[in-house]
Design a protein around this nucleic acid. Structure first.
Lengths: 189, 189
DNA sequence: ACGATGTGAGAACGATGATTCTCCACGTAA
DNA sequence: TTACGTGGAGAATCATCGTTCTCACATCGT
């Protein structure tokens, strides 16, 4: 097995396990057995667990935003910038329905490690900032006032955590309805 | 020191430490030194750490909801049911500005332990369900359609986590603005 | 073939944590 | 006073975890 595939396998295993059970509940030995990569190799690739945790978050951030953007862009191309905004919530609904959905990995990591690890706290902050920026772009493209972006972000974040705890994807629909109301309220502005 | 005060001191220390650093990052020995109660006594009062964690969450749930209700009730008595709803977000703003604010203890505990501990997951679920129920009562008192309660809940949850990660209390104001818009949108309904 | 290098399996190490145990001081009932 | 129960400080125990080390084995260039 070459280094790149070993690295990918470790990151895949780490992502699945960290997301499912939290960071501290997952030992390096479990990542070894799940990935099939020896401890020695894992420590060659990541000098310490903390680096693996950071890389897991960075990889997840990139993939999460790419998947979101793909879904939203195709909806926006087909139905315009207003529908693009609502498509964010449709995508959340799809996400919430995935098996093993456990909320936002960044909120979870922040809650678990934010006090102790400034780098984890920073990555979580950046992820949320990127998400906010993304909403800001959609709102600008739809010619709505900028504060709407922050409000939509709150709806999305609320849906993410509420869905995780209740185990239902319904909050995505509720957030979408609220988002539509907020959009309509700026219609004449 | 009698048993009741020892119990109170342990729970106070546990709440402060668990909330600040997360559950797994806090050892029983730290709770002992912070509370001034010997390990022997702690284990008399709580047969295992897990029981202490559960009790910490229950105590926090009760106090959190009592404090919220106090603030909202006084606003509602003075300015009516519509202002009572908005007062929830004013109270969130006060909470976010408290030193050491780190988001919702239940979301954090759920993220950290939800997979591994069904009882923690259950307590978190109950807490959120109570919060939702509280919103439902306010919405009913203000004669608004029931689905509004779910939407307001999402705004509040979103503000709670966003404020924790960004370190700013501003999301409370943004959520309040969005809530006002949603309220106005049902004005004529 | 042979030495150098790298690898995997798993033991070893040192730290930390949850839980229990030991030992001793102290107050108290007889 | 004395025997006793209680409680505290902290050592002991046992497990787990992050990290490193050992060692036997394979690979490969010469």
């Amino acid at each position: 097995m070459d280094l790149d595939t070993a690295r990918a396998r470790v990151l895949d295993a780490a992502e699945a396990l960290f997301y499912e059970r939290g960071v501290q509940a997952v030992g390096m030995d479990l990542i070894r057995s799940a990935s099939g990569v020896s401890l020695k190799r894992i420590y060659q690739l990541f000098p310490a667990k903390e680096q693996l945790v950071e890389e897991f978050l960075r990889v997840r951030d990139a993939r999460w935003r790419r998947r979101l953007a793909e879904h939203v862009t195709s909806a926006g191309d087909a139905h315009g910038p207003r529908e693009a905004i609502l498509a964010v919530f449709d995508w959340l609904h799809l996400w919430f329905d995935e098996p093993g959905y456990r909320g936002c990995a960044f909120i979870n990591a922040f809650g678990e490690l934010g006090t102790v690890s400034p780098s984890v706290a920073g990555i979580a902050r950046e992820h949320k900032e990127e998400f906010r920026r993304y909403f800001a772009g959609l709102v600008a493209a739809a010619d709505r006032p900028a504060p709407l972006a922050d409000q939509l972000l709150l709806l999305a974040e609320g849906a993410i955590t509420t869905s995780a705890i209740t185990g239902s994807a319904e909050p995505a629909r509720q957030a979408r309805d609220a988002a539509r109301t907020l959009l309509n309220a700026t219609e004449s502005a």
